[in-house]
Design a protein around this nucleic acid. Structure first.
Length: 968
RNA sequence: GGGCGCGUAGCUCAGCGGUAGAGCACUACGUUGACAUCGUAGUGGUCACAGGUUCGAUCCCUGUCGCGCCCA
């Protein structure tokens, strides 16, 4: 059945994908040569509930190119797929679902809720995986991993040991002192009611106010505040104040103020350091402290200090010994009732009034209320509009609160060293190189990593608490006094506890109160026992995905895959997760197994819309890769992303561009169709070696093929995906289709050349399919199947290794001359408006030896492509002819009566003008003795040659012009 | 404020010490034995600006201007 005119991507893609799957084509080690070197890529696991966006499409296209390329080259290749359980994101999906029927997470038991999330996981997993498959991602799908596989409560079909790996790492790091628990100010997300890490906080610039509040000085103190200044900034007038004005963007936090800071060198205030103010509302007496954090140029120079609700204030409080008063609950509502810290040191009536007024209300409501109160009571000094940064949760999009809680931290300072060294000494290479700076900068200034999350979906922290034992033998159940047991299972922990407490039996209880209850009961038992309860928190998602390289390969089991594929070869990822993921994988792999996770990290940029805007749902400029695949085919989308993947640069995607590359696929398709019509594929089977044709044209295209193979390999070896794509585009369209296919037409008519041309064309087109396959897998696989008897699918075809040995320099020169001649004739014809279809006679005025030989050998195709009827020799050009000057010769085409003499004059004059300009430059250089002396010899030689050729050509054009002048 | 980039044809971008390229867009012509998802020919650039290094600078260095991004 003859080929269709175009490739039907929509129909072919599922069929081809099924064929690959049936052949197990992507399995680890498939198509590996004996003793092959391993090549392994770990997919950056998408969120299990996610769907494919343009960034994924880009990221996975690049990985697939590398994977397919290596697999075809016979490497022992593994592209490891999987998904991430994505703690907050996934829990959010389920909670949103529940909210539709007015239910909350807390309406369920933890186990029941977790079961719902597992169900959601099962339901959504297929989405993203199916979408990756539609892109053509050649992952070993039989090895699909999940960051929570094997976790307690995991349903059937979720076997695996990733959970074991995560727990084991936590326990080991805890035992080595790399993980600790601490009461610290953390970023608290009031929406999800959990701590988050620094990285999950986004700074958002918002329009707000700077409110100035008057805090009354205690003990009758007053001071002179400067109010007028001379030109040099010296105070010239003062007023007496018995209050201090502080400026704040967050008035509501004044309820937790425990100090006012001024700069120790600030002449306005420094004498007040050590004095006190009495707070409005609460009547609390708080000190004025000196600290360099107070910037004399910002606000009023005096800043209220709330150590419990601001990171900077926490620092000031720590340095100057201020109290810490927490006035908010986990949802960022003001919490004053039964708040002993708050009540301490304040008059009871004021406390009662404050509770009445503010307790239980949202932070923003209280802000309004405080400002109103301040205005009414006369301690609002003023309001200035102020634009400032407010930290927001990257998932919840609500303003985060610095919040004082007990959390678990990785002591990153202790494990950062090896991760820095590995990049510094080149064991791991980050590309583009500038991203190493980003990596260094972050790691060199690394902060402790808060890894506990107050969520239910995730790896529960393997820590159990029991009572502390005081010197007098009493049990201590206070938060600070608890004894921590860390182990991979309760049995392990129970053994530790039995030894620690010297008791025979240890029970596990749900929480502290259940444990206490049990403990009280145990007094009535004969046997001494202790009850422990597990830390309810789960680990940051990135803690587990930080173990992705070893975890997916089966660690802690010493699997053959781990032996073979670790350290992995390349990580392909976006720059936005260098900190989240890349740096942490480096630190953790080095800390846990003492080796780098990957040898190369290829960092790519962002996919933007065609105007350069970040794609976002709210802007409505999101291009959905799946819709694009539906419309243009996966190959077109892939090729577009590849061609635009200049290292480290954002790519602006337009559908026009995708359509252009879809056309490129069609172009190759039709070249193959042309071949089919000319019997090229009759009896064709994959050739092991390149053909050795005799005709110059065929020898030339074989050499060009060898060139592009080298270019593609070199480009891919350097991760220059764009260069690989462009080299193939230029070769297939610009060389094979534009010239070779055209040249072949007359060759097919000649019995002497037909056979070898068929063989050559078959080979060349095979090479096109092979070389293009990593970027455009579908159309090439389809063509491969349609065009010959094949032992293997194209996905497993042997990648060629031939090189410049196939280039025949003589054929190269000759074909370049032929192409230049055809170009010249076509250009001349078009410019003097000779109808395209008209066949003309041509006169050869002069031609050197090489030119004559070239003409002889290629006459048929020159005549055909330049539309020349006959060639005769003559010493001089006939009247009314156009002149064609080429290297080594000149031709004329008589066009008397057909062309406009003036037009031909103009054409030649223009050509001559450009030529003279070029020659002027060349002469100028050669005339400069310093150039001849200093420039490399080959550059000087080349310049001389160019000059000679140019002068020769100019002479011919001048002669032609002179002739035209005679005619008038 | 600190850091990293980027300013090349109308647009999107390659190039990078030897005198400027691609795709798209645009103009004219055209169904010549694959392809109109096409062909042929063409228009279009003091390579942001100013200095410096060099025989020679779009490319290297310095500064200026403009635009992004990241971290505070």
């Amino acid at each position: 059945m003859p080929m269709e005119k175009t490739f039907d991507a929509a129909a072919a893609e599922p069929r081809l994908a099924a064929a690959w799957e049936a052949a197990n084509a992507f399995a680890a080690g498939a198509n590996a040569k004996p003793g092959a070197e391993p090549f392994c890529i770990m997919i950056p696991p998408p969120n299990v509930t996610g769907s494919l966006h343009m960034g994924h499409a880009f990221n996975n296209t690049l990985q697939d190119i590398l994977t397919r390329w290596h697999r075809m080259r016979g490497f022992d290749t593994l592209w490891q797929p999987g998904t991430d359980h994505a703690g907050i994101a996934t829990q959010m999906v389920v909670e949103r679902e529940l909210a539709k029927s007015n239910r909350r997470r807390t309406d369920f038991s933890r186990a029941d809720f977790t079961r719902l999330v597992w169900e959601q996981k099962k339901k959504s997993r297929g989405n993203i995986i199916g979408q990756l498959k539609r892109l053509g991602a050649s992952c070993d799908w039989s090895r699909e991993a999940f960051t929570m596989s094997g976790a307690p409560g995991a349903p059937d079909g979720e076997a695996g040991n990733f959970h074991d790996a995560v727990i084991k790492v936590f326990v080991e790091m805890y035992n080595k002192g790399l993980i600790y628990r601490g009461k610290r100010l953390v970023n608290w997300d009031p929406h999800f009611e959990t701590a988050i890490s620094d990285l999950e906080v986004e700074q958002v610039e918002v329009n707000g106010n700077l409110w100035r509040l008057r805090y009354r000085l205690a003990d009758g103190v007053s001071y002179e505040h400067p109010v007028a200044f001379d030109d040099e900034g010296r105070a010239t007038d003062w007023e007496t104040r018995d209050y201090l004005v502080v400026a704040t963007t967050r008035p509501e936090t004044m309820l937790g103020d425990t100090g006012v800071a001024v700069h120790p060198d600030d002449v306005r205030y420094r004498h007040l350091i050590g004095s006190h103010v009495v707070m409005p509302v609460t009547g609390r007496r708080i000190p004025i402290v000196g600290d360099a954090y107070a910037d004399p140029d910002k606000g009023t120079g005096a800043v209220k200090i709330t150590p419990a609700h601001d990171f900077n204030d926490w620092g000031v409080g720590t340095r100057t010994g201020l109290r810490v008063i927490n006035v908010m609950d986990t949802r960022a509502a003001i919490a004053l009732r039964d708040n002993a810290d708050f009540a301490e040191g304040c008059p009871a009536d004021l406390i009662a009034a404050a509770i009445e007024r503010f307790d239980g209300r949202d932070r923003y409501e209280v802000r309004e209320a405080i400002v109103t109160l301040a205005r009414d009571d006369g301690w609002l000094d003023g309001i200035d509009a102020d634009r400032h940064m407010v930290p927001h949760g990257d998932r919840s999009k609500v303003a985060i609160e610095p919040f004082l809680t007990d959390q678990w931290f990785v002591d990153t300072a202790k494990i950062v060293g090896p991760a820095l060294d590995a990049v510094r000494d080149g064991r791991t290479q980050i590309l583009p190189e500038r991203d190493t700076k980003t990596y260094y900068h972050w790691l060199e200034n690394i902060e402790p990593w808060c890894i506990s999350r107050q969520l239910w979906w995730g790896h529960q922290i393997p820590v159990w608490y029991g009572p502390g034992v005081e010197p007098d033998g009493k049990s201590d159940y206070s938060t600070e006094g608890l004894k921590v047991f860390c182990g991979t299972t309760f049995a392990e922990v129970a053994a530790q506890a039995r030894a620690y407490y010297g008791v025979a039996s240890v029970h596990e209880k749900a929480d502290l109160s259940a444990a206490l209850e049990d403990q009280l009961e145990s007094f009535s038992h004969a046997e001494a026992s202790v009850s422990l309860w597990r830390d309810p928190d789960v680990l940051d998602t990135w803690f587990s995905s930080g173990l992705w390289p070893i975890g997916t390969l089966g660690w802690p089991e010493q699997t053959p895959e781990l032996q073979k594929y670790f350290p992995t070869s390349v990580l392909v990822t976006g720059f936005d997760i260098i900190f989240f993921w890349v740096a942490r994988m480096m630190m953790m792999q080095l800390a846990v197994v003492g080796d780098i996770p990957f040898r190369t990290v290829y960092v790519h940029a962002l996919v933007r819309d065609e105007k350069g805007k970040k794609m976002s749902k709210s802007l409505g400029n999101v291009l959905d890769p799946l819709e694009l695949i539906d419309e243009y085919g996966a190959d077109a989308v892939r090729f577009t992303l590849t061609a635009m993947a200049a290292m480290g640069r954002d790519l602006k995607l337009s559908t026009q561009r995708i359509a252009g590359y879809r056309n490129f696929g069609t172009k190759l398709w039709n070249a193959c169709r042309f071949a089919e019509m000319n019997g090229v594929w009759e009896g064709h089977a994959t050739q092991g070696a390149a053909p050795q044709p005799k005709a110059t044209v065929n020898r030339w295209i074989v050499g060009e093929t060898a060139r592009v193979r080298e270019a593609v390999d070199e480009a891919l070896a350097q991760y220059r995906f764009d260069a690989a794509a462009n080299a193939l585009y230029a070769f297939i369209w610009g060389k094979v289709c534009d010239w070779y296919v055209e040249f072949a037409k007359p060759l097919f008519d000649d019995a002497a050349t037909a056979a070898e041309t068929r063989a050559t064309m078959a080979w060349v087109l095979d090479q096109c399919m092979i070389l293009l396959h990593p970027i455009m897998p579908f159309v090439t696989e389809e063509l491969w199947g349609l065009t010959g008897r094949r032992d293997k699918l194209l996905v497993h075809a042997d990648w060629p290794a031939y090189g410049s040995d196939l280039i025949d320099p003589a054929a190269d020169r000759e074909m370049n001359w032929v192409i230049a001649l055809i170009d010249e004739i076509r250009s001349a014809r078009a410019q003097v408006h000779v109808p395209v279809g008209l066949k003309l006679d041509m006169v050869q005025l002069s031609l050197d030896e090489a030119g004559r030989a070239a003409w002889m050998r290629n006459e048929a195709l020159i005549r055909r492509l330049a539309r020349i009827e006959t060639l005769t020799e003559a010493a001089a050009a006939p009247k009314g002819a156009i002149t064609i000057a080429v290297e080594g010769g000149a031709f004329a085409i008589p066009l008397e009566g057909i062309i406009d003499i003036a037009e031909e004059k103009a054409r030649l004059a223009k050509a001559l003008d450009k030529l003279r300009k070029d020659l002027g430059g060349l002469r100028g250089r050669l005339g400069n003795p310093k150039f001849v002396a200093s420039a490399p010899e080959e550059v000087v030689d080349e310049t001389r040659t160019l000059l000679e050729q140019g002068e020769d050509e100019a002479a011919k054009i001048e002669a032609a012009l002179a002739r035209l002048a005679e005619i008038g």
